[in-house]
Amino acid sequence: MESKNHTGITQFLLLGLLDDLELDPLLFGVFLSMYLVSVVGNLLIMLATCIDTQLHTPMYFFLFNLSFVDICFISTTVPKMLVNIQMQRKDISYTECLTQAYFFIIFLGMENFILTVMAYDRFVAICHPLNYRVIMNPWLCVLLVLISWVIMFWIALVHILLLTKLTFSIGTEISHFFCELDQLLQVTNSDTLINNIFVYVVTALLGFFPVTGILFSYSRIISSLMRMTSVASKHKALSTCSSHLCVVSLYCGTGLGVYLSSSVTDSTRSNTVASVMYTVVTPMLNPVIYSLRNKDVKGALRRLLRKAASWP
């Protein structure tokens, strides 16, 4: 098969989730519904945290950013898949593919960072309540988010620059519904040693530091809760952490599920279906979890909907 690099007119073929064309209408309806639920739900969270003054705190500032990242995360992959299903096509251009991979890496990493920062925020709120406003001042909150964006922009850029050095065959098939970095490295005709080394190093760092930060924060929170004598204080502290714990558990659980599925079976299609959990299901469920388990968010959403209903 003829091989061309990135300077040629190159297209990839996204094989998607299913081979049965008769199931495409069902697949389109399911993913369109999930996408709309995710976007609308996260937009409502963002509007509530912006409009309601009671939610102008560091905790909800980070929730705003998490909702924004979730919208961007799911919008990186699902719309292209929906277009391909609707038009009964599987192609994606070289530029579109690298662009999709670039933003996917950014938002995947940002999800990790935001969840870690939110754990640190809960640690400060529960373990150092008297100094909470001093420590978690607006400048620090903005700085933490800004640093996370800068780190992920540069990491994703290095990944893409390394990808541009690789060559691919015309009509290369990708066994996924989006351009995942690992899949691109599997289908290239070039040596991927440097790419793989960078992937392993970044994965180790972006896995180690967020997980360590979250575990450290909650170990200190649990230690602080055990020293509390008031049941009411314990309940209040736990209630502020419950939504975040559910989101972290969902995110880590789906990620672990993808890892285990790839380790247990060599079926690429099984891995693709498993990856739907953290790329589509998690961004959809995050706003549901926060709206159901957080009374402040529920109250803000009710007030927002009442205002919308009474709008002339």
Rank of each mutant, 00 (worst) to 15 (best):
P25M: 01
V231G: 09
T279E: 05
N137G: 03
S3C: 14
F104L: 12
L27T: 12
P25T: 03
L13E: 13
L157R: 13
S263F: 11
P25L: 02
G29C: 12
N195Y: 00
T7L: 11
I222E: 11
N271H: 11
Y251K: 14
T7V: 06
T203Q: 10
F12Q: 00
L256G: 10
L163P: 07
V211D: 13
L32Y: 14
K4W: 12
S242T: 13
V134Q: 15
P287G: 02
M152E: 08
I106G: 05
S224F: 07
R306K: 12
Y35P: 07
T212C: 13
T268I: 07
V280H: 06
I289R: 04
Q86K: 07
R303K: 14
R133N: 15
T116I: 06
L166K: 14
V202T: 15
I114P: 10
T172L: 00
N42S: 03
I197P: 02
G255I: 04
G207W: 04
L301M: 07
S233E: 14
M87D: 11
E111W: 04
G257K: 10
N131F: 06
C50N: 15
L27G: 04
Y35Q: 07
L225T: 08
M110S: 09
Y200L: 11
C127Q: 10
L206A: 08
S93G: 08
N271M: 07
P58F: 00
R89N: 12
F209I: 14
F208R: 02
T212H: 09
S230A: 09
Y259G: 12
L163E: 01
S169V: 01
M110Q: 15
R227P: 06
I147E: 13
P283Q: 03
L21Y: 12
N112E: 14
L115K: 05
N195K: 02
V134E: 15
I222G: 03
F64R: 00
I197L: 12
Q11P: 03
I135E: 09
N294T: 00
G253Q: 05
V30Q: 08
L44F: 11
V124E: 06
L161S: 03
Y251M: 07
L143M: 13
V258E: 14
S230G: 10
M46G: 04
C252H: 11
E111F: 05
K236M: 13
H244P: 09
L304I: 01
V247M: 03
L55K: 10
I147H: 09
L47F: 11
R220H: 15
I9E: 13
A204M: 05
E180Q: 07
M136H: 06
M118T: 09
I155R: 12
T10E: 14
L43Q: 15
V231C: 07
S275W: 02
D121Q: 11
T212L: 14
L161N: 10
C252R: 04
M87T: 14
D52I: 00
L130N: 13
L36F: 14
V78D: 04
I222A: 15
I160E: 08
C97E: 00
L292R: 08
M87H: 10
M152C: 10
T77V: 15
V158T: 01
A204Q: 06
N131A: 12
K234Y: 05
L47H: 08
K90G: 02
V258T: 05
N131S: 14
D296K: 08
G299R: 13
S175G: 01
